[in-house]
Structure formats: C-alpha cells, structure tokens
C-alpha cells in the first residue's frame, strides 16, 4: 500500500525552499558573509521576518543548521548571513561558490519585540560574532530611525582582524543619529584608533541614559553576558528590558526535535530572544 498517500493534507514545514548564494566573501579568517536570494522571485520579495529571527540553511547531502538572519526586513529581497566555520554544514557552505543552490526554511523564533522597543532608547551591545543577529536589529532601527529615540552601539572584538562588518560599523561612526563606540580587547596592529579594552569598558563612554525607557540588546560569547548584564543592572535598566539572543542545538527549528529544549520551553519557538528576567526565572538559559 506504499505510495498511496502522495496527496498530503498538510503542508510540509520541513521542506526547504530553493535559494541561491548571490554573494559570498570572507569577513575574517574564519567567518564568511553570505547574501542569499530565494529562487522564486515572488516568494523572495514577499518573505517577511523580524530582526532576531533565524532560518535553517540546508546543503544537499550535508544537512541543515540554524543561522541568525543578519539582514533587515526593511531591505527586502535578499537575506544575509554571517557564518563561522564550525561543523559539517558550515564546512560545506564555505566550499560553495556564488550562484550555488542551497535550501532555506524559516523564519523561526520570536525575534526582538520591535513594537515594545518603539519610542524607547536602544543600546546594542555586541561581542564578536554576536554582530550576526544584532546587525539585523541595528539596521532596522537605522532604517526606521524616527520610530526610536537614542540608538547606541557598543561593539567589542578580540582584535582588529576579528572584527566583522568592520568597514560598515566604522562608516556608522559618521552618523550623527547614532552613538557608536568600538573597541578591541587587544590591538596587535598598532593602528587601532578606537577604544582598547573589553566591551564593558565602553559603558563609561556612554552618555547618561534614561534607564526606564531603555532597551538593551546583548549578544556575544557566553563569557560576556555575566559582565555586561552586571553593568546594565547597575544602570537600573529593568530586567525585562535587557534582551539577549541565545544559541542552542537545533535540528528542526519548529519545536519538534527537542534539542533546543531549555527547562520547559523550546529555544526555537519561545526564543532565541530572552530577557534577563527569563534567565533568572528559568533554569539553564545562560
């Protein structure tokens, strides 16, 4: 009786949508930038998402993995990803040339609460590869600048060569409607013109804030959270206005495979954006 059920009543949420790598280049030694377009033009243009959401990218034969979307929905048509070499799927992706076909499905996850963030001050705190998800919300705020009050970026990288989106973020320093502070832990080039020190040293450069009307967005390596959150809590920013986006293993992205379970929630459905209150309230988040 095999083959009788070709006509399914359900859409298949596991089916990847064919997409094309439009552009790809190295951001650092082991991080690559990917610009991707869904092959079906109509779908490519109507594809909508929120900053902070993610998608599953699949490479035929290698499998699929979750990646934050680094582009902003305010610039539709192309999706951008910033991908570090880490496993089977990323190794396969790194070998792929421009114009290669990949699979894409999404968007998944909750994303940042943009509606709540409107008419508020926004501080974006980035450590290293944390720029991948936070670039989306940063560009969204800048593209819709009149919807937000102060926007600040505090960016930290280990050393100048490991800073991703270097030209882009340096260019942002020219904008008068953005407070942009860049730092490296160590300058091994002797040519770094900005702050030197871990990302928390940038807080002293920040102008006085209005904590109750501030949303702080944090993403970076696990070690960073503890120190950054301490600063933010000391600044009196409410715990449910401190937002962070977390990484977990995912095989499905749609709350079925179980791998991203934390306590009693699924990162792929209820995250990846969590508040500091969630972290205190639930177990195992960071």
């Amino acid at each position: 009786m095999n083959g009788e059920n070709k006509h399914l009543t359900h859409d298949n949420p596991f089916l990847p949508e064919p997409a094309r790598i439009v552009r790809t280049y190295y951001l650092t030694e082991d991080v690559k930038f990917f610009q991707v377009r869904i092959v079906d033009m109509e779908k490519a243009l109507s594809f909508n998402y929120s900053p902070g959401q993610f998608g599953m990218i699949s490479v035929l034969g290698a499998g699929d993995a979750p990646f934050s979307i680094s582009s902003t929905p305010s610039r539709p048509g192309l999706l951008e990803f910033c991908i570090g070499k880490a496993g089977t799927v990323t190794n396969a992706l790194f070998r792929m040339k421009e114009n290669s076909l990949i699979g894409f499905r999404g968007p998944y996850g909750n994303g940042f609460p943009i509606e709540k963030m409107k008419d508020k001050d926004i501080i974006i705190i980035v450590g290293g590869l944390g720029a991948a998800p936070l670039r989306s919300v940063l560009l969204y705020c800048l593209d819709n600048r009149d919807q937000f009050r102060r926007v600040s970026l505090l960016h930290g990288a280990k050393k100048p060569a490991e800073m991703i989106f270097r030209e882009e973020f340096f260019a942002l320093k020219q904008r008068e409607d953005l407070e942009c502070h860049l730092s490296v832990d160590k300058d091994d080039t002797g040519k770094w013109t900005e702050n030197i020190g871990v990302v928390t040293t940038l807080f002293s450069l920040l102008e006085k804030i209005d904590p109750v009307n501030t949303y702080a967005l944090v993403c970076g390596p696990p070690v960073m959270y503890k120190f950054v959150i301490k600063e933010l809590v000391n600044l009196n920013i409410p715990k449910d206005q401190i937002l962070m986006t977390l990484e977990r293993r995912m095989k499905c992205g749609i709350g079925k495979c179980g791998h991203c379970a934390i306590d009693y929630i699924y990162t792929c459905l209820d995250g990846p954006v969590f508040t500091y209150w969630d972290v205190i309230h639930m177990r195992e988040l960071i």
């Binding site: 059920n5 399914l8 009543t9 359900h10 859409d11 298949n12 949420p13 596991f14 749609i254 709350g255 079925k256 459905l269």
Partner: peptide
C-alpha cells in the same frame, strides 16, 4: 498534542491518520 502544536508534523500526523 505535541505534534499538532505550533507547527503540524506531517510525518507523524499522516501515519496517525492512516
């Protein structure tokens, strides 16, 4: 309950229906 929640999992639900 689980496989119908949020996203429908057709691999389970089709087998269940049959």
């Amino acid at each position: 309950n689980f496989f119908k929640q949020d996203y429908l999992d057709p691999y389970y639900l089709e087998a269940r229906k049959n």
